[in-house]
């Protein structure tokens, strides 16, 4: 019963957050100077006025806002200004799979690199293994994706020829962009894992386990892991937000026609419906993931489970 209430209240909060994001984006976009049709193409004033009227941009802002929210509620995102003949939903449907693929791939790489590396470093605290792993992680954090990406493209794409250095043609084309993202977040996750595991490994109950004759391996994975990766789980929400901004960069480097590129183009061209549509899409994605992360946290931690039940 209380569980349901908790979920419902979280759902309410999420909807509120979504509403706020859309509203803020709408007004920031519309109150800014300039518009979609008064750029350097020097469109005659009367044509510009006609186009604005066609898209409803001549009406007072509150009216436009209410109309937009109304359309949104019926699932209508409108048409893109910049991509003539395409609705916003179509543009998103084209770009999102690419962005999601490299984002998800990046997350998988990050977890696959970060968790083992961090656990290894924690279990060999203050040894060469630890210093080596953490120096590597520090490098991963300090070398930005837009340096790593080109290097990977040169090495694996051009030198070794294993992958395409550019574009989205083959089923393996997600690997290099994802690896670029994965190295950065993997380095971060390695540090979080090490910190979390060290915190747990210093607890009295680990000593209890050792006194019971539990092996080092089982102490790490049977006793410490569940508590030790809580910082990583907490980081998943912010990591997703980071992966999204990371995908802007990576799509630029590897020339991918993903959602990030559409968003940046939309922002530079004042393509209001597309801006709002992509922001809405990102926000729903992030809010959903955060909600799942919350549930995962509760599932991992029996004390939280008790507190929320």
């Amino acid at each position: 019963m209380d569980q349901t209430r908790y979920i419902l209240s979280r759902l309410g909060q999420s909807l509120l957050a979504l509403f706020c994001i859309i509203t803020i984006t709408f007004f920031i976009a519309r109150l800014a100077p300039g518009g979609p049709f008064n750029d350097d193409k020097a469109v005659p004033a009367h044509i510009q006025a006609k186009m604005e009227a066609y898209y409803g941009l001549d009406k007072p802002l509150p009216v436009q806002y209410i109309k937009y929210i109304g359309n949104l509620l019926t699932g209508d995102f409108g048409s893109s200004f910049g991509n003539k003949g395409f609705t916003v939903a179509e543009v998103i449907a084209q770009g999102a799979p690419i962005s999601l693929a490299i984002g998800l791939g990046g997350l998988l790489f990050a977890l696959a690199i970060g968790i083992p590396l961090g656990t290894l470093a924690a279990s060999r605290k203050n040894t060469k293994t630890d210093y080596f792993s953490m120096s590597f992680a520090m490098l991963g954090i300090c070398i930005p994706t837009f340096v790593v990406g080109p290097l990977l493209a040169i090495f694996f794409g051009l030198r070794l020829g294993w992958f395409n250095a550019w574009g989205w043609f083959q089923p393996t084309d997600w690997i290099l962009p994802s690896l670029t993202l994965g190295i950065y977040y993997g380095a971060y996750i390695a540090r979080l894992t090490r910190g979390g595991m060290l915190e747990i490994l210093g607890q009295d109950y680990i000593r209890t386990a050792r006194a019971k004759g539990v092996s080092q391996f089982n102490i790490l994975f049977g006793h410490a892991f569940r508590g030790g990766i809580i910082p990583v789980v907490n980081f998943l929400g912010p990591a997703l937000a980071g992966l999204i901004s990371g995908s802007f960069v990576v799509e630029t480097i590897f020339g991918l026609d993903g959602l990030g590129q559409h968003f940046i183009t939309a922002a530079t061209n004042r393509d209001y419906p597309l801006i709002l549509g992509t922001v809405f899409f990102y926000a729903v994605l992030i809010i959903t993931v955060n909600f799942l992360v919350d549930l995962l946290q509760v599932w991992l931690n029996p004390r939280l489970r008790a507190a929320r039940a």
Binding site: T25, A241, S245, R270, Y282, V289
Partner: peptide
């Protein structure tokens, strides 16, 4: 703090991009 929690998860890069391109 709940507000901070919510803001934490937002793709702020998006807002920053909108701000910098528009203004």
């Amino acid at each position: 703090m709940r507000i901070v929690d919510i803001l934490y998860a937002l793709p702020f890069m998006i807002i920053v991009i909108i701000l910098t391109t528009f203004f």
